[in-house]
Design a protein around this nucleic acid. Structure first.
Lengths: 146, 146
DNA sequence: GTAGGGCTTGACGCGGACGTCAAGGCAAGG
DNA sequence: CCTTGCCTTGACGTCCGCGTCAAGCCCTAC
């Protein structure tokens, strides 16, 4: 099949396929007139790349999977190098998730503190003190427009 | 103080400060010879920006905080617009964390399946069969769509 | 005088995964 | 013949937060 059909079947663009080729993934045969010519194996290979891309893998990280399929293995992750990428990625994901969770907590605390400060200021302005025990009360529900 | 000192005290670079200025954050007075001239308020403002940047906020998202400080408020998050950014960011973080957790689970399952397949292949190669029901492994237990 | 440091503006580079435009070839239909 | 639609290569644009270099001015010290 030609590049347009492959792109359509993989749900991507021809530009992307040419880009992959320029990166050394997804080589293509050529027909007599110079058009790229792909087969079902190329489609499988491309789907493997796209799946990993959807996971957030960088293109280079998909290379072991591609090489694995090219070597004739039934799946892209049938090779040790692919498993190593999986494991490294798991570590990265755990680290990133933990980091984001930490940031989330800090932002949540900042928000809570700022809301409380705003609430107290409003209370004072209205001559009405909050008067609760100064600890960490349950977060205000949704008093401001989001 | 001049730009070099401000950069040092904020733990960033002069290039970064000029960039912030070009973006309309962090305006600077000028001395007679054309040098930028900053004061302690600018430092506070800059620290606010840097804190949010460390949280992963985009520069544009720090603008409400900057405007808030410039308006004379005691903290950058004393204004409704800043709180709105906090809330939006919390939502984004929750979404992102959930998505990453979903990816993490998928990668973990892929890894487990590939490891098991590799183990069985090795077992067969060694004349030792794993012996579990040879069909598809049980469907993934939890679908964490992200 | 001159070396050295800090400052100025301007402009290009980077990384990642492409989008988009330009100029032109190839094949099929009317 | 001409149009339409697919294909080719090449090259520049995008986003973001800067890094880095270039050319030159200001001030101080020796």
């Amino acid at each position: 099949m030609r590049i347009g059909e492959l792109a359509k079947r993989a749900g991507t663009s021809t530009r992307t396929l040419r880009y992959y080729e320029s990166r050394g993934l997804l080589a293509a045969r050529r027909t007599g007139n110079g058009y790229r010519d792909y087969d079902e194996d190329d489609l499988r290979l491309l789907r493997q790349i796209r799946t990993l891309q959807d996971f957030g893998f960088e293109l280079e990280e998909t290379r072991p999977f591609v090489d694995c399929l090219r070597a004739g293995h039934p799946a892209g992750d049938s090779c040790p190098a692919s498993l190593a990428v999986y494991r490294r990625k798991l570590g990265e994901l755990d680290g990133l998730i933990g980091q984001l969770a930490g940031v989330r907590e800090q932002v949540a605390r900042q928000l809570a503190a700022a809301e409380e400060a705003a609430g107290e200021a409003a209370g004072q302005a209205a001559g009405h003190t909050a008067g609760d025990g100064g600890g960490e009360p349950p977060a205000p529900r949704c008093e401001m427009t989001g």
